[in-house]
Design a protein around this nucleic acid. Structure first.
Lengths: 336, 336
DNA sequence: CAAACGAAGCAAACCGATTTGCCCCCACGG
DNA sequence: CCGTGGGGGCAAATCGGTTTGCTTCGTTTG
C-alpha cells in the first residue's frame, strides 16, 4: 500500500480520494457529527482499512484545541507515594481516554514554573500539581484560564483559587496517638521532623494528648526525617529519667530508627515500648515486627484529583473551587 | 493586553502586527534559523514581552513533526522498579528537553497494542517499551518507521529489530549463588518462581553450582513470587532429611518468606541458614536483619534506554539495533 | 565594473485534521 | 404548487505555527 509515495504518511485526503468522496465526509464518518449514508460510510471505512489510515493526533489537537492529555507535576516519581497517585489519577479520569505527562520538579521552584509553562504550551487539557512553593495567585497568572488545575499534597491548606485534594494528616496523627494512649498510664512521646515541617501531624498528636491531660513538652523531640534521625531521637528519649512507654513518629523511616534504638536497649516492642509511624511505606509491612502506622491515601488522592478534573473538563462542574479532605487510616500491626 | 478580543490566545500573527513585521520574521527571531537585524529582533522581542506571547506547542508540532515527547510503556508504575526507570530515562534523554508520557499496561496484551498505537498517533518522538508479549516483527508493523523504540525488561532476549537494554539476571544470580557457596561444604538450595518464569535467574544459580560440582535437583523448589510462597517452599526444604545451609531466592519477597520459615524453625541467620534474594526492593534494607540481595539496575536501564533513544533521535546513530546488558550488583548485607 | 553573495525581510504554501456555510435533492404538509 | 425541512455531500476556511522561494539592498571579489 502506498509503496511509491515518497512520504509514507497517509492523510485524510488520501482516504477521501481513494473512496471517491471529500475530506469532510471522511471526517464525518469518523466523528459521527453529521449523518453519512450507509453506502458511503461503508466505502470510506473500506478505504480506511485498505490504506491503514490512522488520524494524526497532533493535527486533530490543533483544530479541536484539546489533547486528551493531563500533566502530573510532582516532586519525584521515585517517591512511592506518587506512582500510586498516578494510578489513581488514571482511574479517576476514567480509564484510557486521557494520557498523563509526568514531570519531576525535585521541589525546585524554578522547575515547577518551567514545567507548568511547558505543559500549558503543549496544550494539556488539565493539570494535577503538588507544589511546595506556588501560591494560588501565582498559579492563576501562570496557567491560562480554561485549563483546570487540581492541587494535591500536604502543604496546601486552603487555596481559594483551585480545586484541592489532600489527606487529613492531623486526624491520622490524632488516631495513631489515641491508639497509643489506649493503655492507661502510658506516656506517649513524639518524634517530629525538623522544626517547621509536617505541622499537621504534630497538631494531631497534641490534640490527642490534650484529650487525656496536658502534653509534656519534654516528650516532643525533633530530628531528621531519616532512620538514623529517628534512632538518635529515640535514644535521647530513652535516656530521660522517666522515659515514655510509647512513641509516635512523624514518618515510618524515623519509626524504624526508633525500633533500632529500642532493640539496642533490649526493650520489648510493644511491651516496653509501643511504636507507631506514619505513611505506611512498603517496608512497614515487611519488617519484624511489622510496623503499626498511618496510611496516606495516595491512590484515593489521585482518584479524587482525577474525578474533580474530569468534572471540570466535561463542564459538569464549573462552580467555585472545592476542597476534598481524605481520611488517613490507622494500620494496626505489631508494634503498637 | 488584548482585553477586547473575544478569544484570548495570542498568536504569532498578533506579535507580528504589534511589531510591524511579518510572521516569518517573528518565527526567525524565535528559531534563529535565519538572521534578523538587531533592531528588528529587539522590536519583536519587545512585542513578545508586551503581549505575553507563548508559542503554541501543538501548532509547532504539526509543522515540525516532532513533539519532544517520549512514551514509556510499562506494566505498572506502581512497581518501584519503573519509577527508577522513568527517572533514568529522563536523565538519559538529557534533562528537560523531552517530556514523558506514561502508560500502564498491567501486562494486558491488548493494552500494550492500544497504547502503542495511541502514542504513535500522538506523534511521540520515541518509545521505551517493556512488553511481555510483543515480538519484534509485530512491533515493527505497529510502530511507523522513523519512530525509534527501545525495548527494556527481562523477557527480551535478543530482538534483532530494536535497541534493547536489559539487566544481566543470569550473572546476578550467579554472583549471589557463588557468594552463598563461598563457605566450603555449604549446600545451597534455590527457591524459584513458578515454572517457566525467571529462567535467567535459575540458569545463573545452576551455572554457579556447576563450578563446584553437580547441582542437586532436590534442592530446587518452585513457588509463588510471594512471601507466603517463599515461606512454604522454605518449610519444605527444612523438612528434607538433609536440609541445605543456604538458599537463594528468585526475588526478595520469597526471601522474606524464607526468613519467616527460618524464624519459625528458630534457625540462626546466617549461621544456620544463609539467605539471599533478588531485586533489592526498598524493604530489603529495612528489615532486621537486612537482606543480602542482588540489585536490579533500574535507573541505569532507564538511563541507557534514554541514551540510545537520544542517539537515534539526533541521528547520531542510525545503524543496526544494539543490545546493552547491564550488570546486576550483589548487595551484601546481613543474611548471607 | 559586473558578477556573486550574504543579510534582511515578506508573501504564500504547508502540516493534517475539523468545522462552517452552502448546495442539491427529495419528501411532506398546507 | 409552493414552502419547509432534513439527509447527504462538498469547497473552503480555520487552527497557529514553520518553511520555501523570492526580492531588495549593500558589500565583496575577480
Amino acid at each position: 500500500m502506498n509503496r511509491f509515495a515518497p512520504h509514507l504518511r497517509i492523510t485524510i485526503a488520501d482516504v477521501a480520494r481513494h473512496a471517491g468522496v471529500s475530506k469532510t465526509t471522511v471526517s464525518h464518518v469518523l466523528s459521527r457529527k453529521r449523518p453519512v449514508s450507509t453506502v458511503t460510510r461503508a466505502r470510506v471505512e473500506e478505504a480506511i482499512r485498505e490504506l491503514g489510515y490512522r488520524p494524526d493526533g497532533v493535527a486533530r489537537s490543533l483544530r479541536t484545541r484539546t489533547t486528551h492529555t493531563v500533566a502530573l507535576i510532582i516532586p519525584d516519581i521515585t517517591n512511592p507515594y506518587y506512582p500510586a497517585v498516578a494510578r489513581g489519577l488514571e482511574d479517576g479520569l476514567g480509564g484510557s481516554t486521557y494520557r498523563s505527562l509526568i514531570c519531576n520538579t525535585d521541589r525546585h521552584p524554578e522547575r515547577e514554573v518551567e514545567f507548568l509553562e511547558d505543559v500549558c504550551d503543549r496544550g494539556v487539557d488539565g493539570i494535577v500539581l503538588d507544589s511546595f512553593t506556588l501560591s494560588g495567585e501565582r498559579l492563576a497568572e501562570l496557567v491560562p484560564p480554561g485549563v483546570p488545575l487540581v492541587r494535591i499534597g500536604a502543604t496546601v491548606i486552603d487555596d481559594p483559587w483551585f480545586d484541592t485534594v489532600h489527606a487529613d494528616d492531623e486526624q491520622g496523627a490524632f488516631d495513631a496517638t489515641l491508639h497509643l494512649l489506649r493503655r492507661p498510664g502510658r506516656r506517649v512521646a513524639m518524634i517530629q521532623g525538623p522544626p517547621g515541617a509536617g505541622g499537621r501531624r504534630n497538631e494531631g498528636y497534641l490534640r490527642a494528648l490534650r484529650t487525656v491531660g496536658a502534653p509534656d513538652p519534654e516528650l516532643v523531640l525533633s530530628g531528621e526525617w531519616t532512620r538514623p534521625g529517628g534512632a538518635a531521637a529515640m535514644r535521647r528519649l530513652l535516656a530521660l529519667p522517666d522515659p515514655p512507654q510509647a512513641v509516635f513518629c512523624a514518618n515510618d523511616l524515623m519509626a524504624f530508627g526508633a525500633l533500632d534504638a529500642a532493640r539496642e536497649a533490649r526493650l520489648d516492642v510493644p511491651g516496653d515500648l509501643a511504636v507507631a509511624g506514619f505513611d505506611d511505606i512498603e517496608a512497614a509491612a515487611m519488617t519484624h515486627p511489622p510496623l503499626t502506622t498511618v496510611s496516606n491515601p495516595a491512590y484515593e488522592t489521585g482518584l479524587l484529583a482525577g474525578t474533580l478534573l474530569k468534572e471540570r473538563l466535561l463542564g459538569v462542574y464549573a462552580d467555585a473551587p472545592r476542597t476534598v479532605t481524605l481520611p488517613c487510616r490507622l494500620i494496626r500491626r505489631a508494634t503498637a
